[in-house]
């Protein structure tokens, strides 16, 4: 990196200044935390009161996908923007395959064959678990995304199989699913982002499925786009077509 860049090679003054600032922030935060009341505040009790109507039985899932579904929806849009921006910067319309790694030995091969199915099963299990225990779309997406990254790193075909249209669709799926369900129900006369109580569970599972896939592909997209050498990416994209 550029040595003249003050951020990568800060002088003493910058170091001392940032130390003083950090210490000051710490002191202020400690003062604030000490000042906080002893009684627990928060909305846990209210969540438990209403959870029967949410369609799921795990409180965080009820909060994320029903009570505060609006937050989650916008977060999915944040994820979409991040992946989209990274791919646009790299001018990548697909996620190219890694050329067959020369160092991939039998041990790696064996490990990948063992781990990937395990990761996929774990991911789907986490997704299914989300309705009544810790788990859910984001965790499941992260695990499946990790499986895809592992496949790609060890030279197997994976996300490179998605053509430009499918990649686009995968990145958009979570956000679009939310948008479609919310808009259709809104036009049908429901409150915006309200689920009909008897279908709430089903709709939440559909949305979670879509978000899982979007999260997984977005993670791989960010991973691929973060490669330091853009030339590498472009030559691969030629290969990916062949």
């Amino acid at each position: 990196m550029d040595n003249r860049d003050p951020l990568s090679n800060p002088g003493y003054l910058v170091r001392i200044l940032s130390m003083v600032l950090s210490a000051g922030l710490l002191a202020v935060l400690i003062a604030a935390v000490v000042d906080l009341g002893d009684e627990p505040t928060g909305l846990t009790a209210r969540v438990m009161e209403q959870i029967d109507q949410s369609g799921v039985s795990h409180p965080p899932t009820a909060v994320l996908l029903n009570f505060r579904a609006y937050d989650t929806w916008l977060e999915v849009a944040v994820l979409l923007l991040a992946a989209w921006g990274a791919l646009a910067l790299r001018q990548a319309t697909r996620l190219p395959e890694q050329p067959q790694a020369t160092s991939a030995g039998p041990v790696l091969d064996w490990l990948v064959r063992l781990l990937v199915p395990l990761l996929i099963v774990t991911g789907v299990y986490l997704l299914w678990l989300g309705t009544n225990a810790p788990g859910g779309a984001f965790q499941a997406g992260a695990v499946i995304g990790a499986a895809l990254v592992l496949l790609r790193l060890s030279g197997y075909r994976s996300v490179g199989l998605l053509d430009a249209l499918w990649l686009r669709g995968s990145l958009l799926a979570g956000f679009a699913g939310f948008l479609l369900i919310a808009t259709v129900l809104f036009l049908a006369g429901w409150t915006f982002l309200e689920y009909p109580p008897d279908q709430a569970g089903l709709l939440i599972v559909i949305i979670e499925l879509l978000i899982t896939w979007t999260v997984a592909v977005s993670f791989v997209a960010l991973f691929v786009a973060a490669r330091p050498d853009p030339d590498d990416l472009n030559t691969e994209s030629e290969g990916g077509h062949g």
């Binding site: 989209w84 790299r90 853009p230």
Partner: peptide
């Protein structure tokens, strides 16, 4: 340029990220 516009060739020019196209959704 620091980042190559590698995909802007041949038949793939359809699929590049033109500023004009990315602008509107963003």
């Amino acid at each position: 340029a620091p980042l190559r516009t590698g995909a802007g060739r041949g038949e793939k020019s359809q699929a590049t990220w033109l500023p004009s196209e990315s602008y509107w959704p963003l």
